[in-house]
């Protein structure tokens, strides 16, 4: 999957949770990714972040440690 699409999607999700009151936004982003993203999409995103991950919003980046990444 092209990384630019995944980045855009992840950023969109982060933008929504960024606007929500309270704390735990990064966990919310991660929960959304865990619930709705197929494992290979999460894996690609994690790999992308591991390789530097330019273009990803700070909140999306903060969410990564909470994302379940499949071990293959």
């Amino acid at each position: 999957m092209q990384p630019d699409k995944l980045i855009m999607m992840a950023n969109q999700i982060a933008t929504f949770f960024q606007s929500q009151p309270g704390t735990g936004q990064a966990e919310s982003v991660a929960a959304h990714l865990n619930d709705f993203w197929e494992p290979r999409m999460r894996q690609q995103l994690a790999e992308y972040v591991a390789s530097g991950g330019p273009g990803l919003s700070p909140l999306a980046r903060d969410a990564i440690p909470h994302v379940r990444v499949p071990v293959e």
Binding site: M1, Q2, D35, F36, E38, R40, P70
Partner: peptide, 18 residues
């Protein structure tokens, strides 16, 4: 127990070969 691909993700994954 893992969510599957949605239609746009299926097409993206197809283009990517998986």
């Amino acid at each position: 127990s893992e969510p599957g691909l949605r239609i746009p993700n299926m097409l993206d994954a197809a283009v990517a070969g998986t």
